[in-house]
Amino acid sequence: MEDWLEIAGRKYRSRLIVGTGKYKDFDETRRAIEVSGAEIVTVAVRRVNITDPNKENLLDYLDPKKYTILPNTAGCYNAEDAVRTCRLAREAGVGKLVKLEVIGDDKTLFPDIPATLEAAKILVKEGFDVLPYITDDPITAKKLEDIGCKAVMPLAAPIGSGLGIRNPYNIRIILEQANVPVIVDAGVGTASDAALAMEMGCHGVLMNTAIAGAKDPILMAEAMRLGIEAGRKAFRAGRIAKKLYATASSPLEGILN
């Protein structure tokens, strides 16, 4: 059976979205992403170093024809900067999909929700397909969906923390309410965290540090791909109910006397 992740009218086979930060070099980035099976990759917008313009560019290693490039607004602390960053990203010609993140505090990297809502309104009006990074708050998720965002992306835990899903109950409420894909963004530490998100019914998981920061990023990229696939299949298969007592797996008839 076909099982697609659909975001902003585009269908994806993979439910894993990966970042491109923190890798040793572009070649490792390319290999990890290839092994992860991801079809959507996030990138950041930054100044070119004009005194030493690096001849190599990330897009030389990630073909925008093969991958959907998802520019982020990381490092933006207010709506104006985030909107400006998105406009610059769109001009690069890789589409109108953006990962909106307006950071509220550099210790937790938690989002500034009022500023995120403000930026989302402007961006949606300007025709962007907005995927906002948010705290695991169902009210915020609903508001952003109502504004016209194409998905909501609640964090599992702080960015880069590797703590896994700290509040699965809130994620469940967000899932129950949402009419757009729910992508767990940030905080995943290992493959079981990704699998758990998928088993809960999340539509996708976005991660960067969990892969790039692993001792062997390429192997972890594969582990994450498998974790996502296993979790998704388990969700679709429908798990058994939890029971306190045993139920025998072998027949009770025909037992030797």
Binding site: G19, T20, A44, V45, R47, I50, N72, L88
Partner: peptide, 10 residues
């Protein structure tokens, strides 16, 4: 002038 490009990010 601001001259920007894409770099690795999450």
């Amino acid at each position: 002038l601001e001259i920007v490009h894409f770099v690795g990010g999450g």
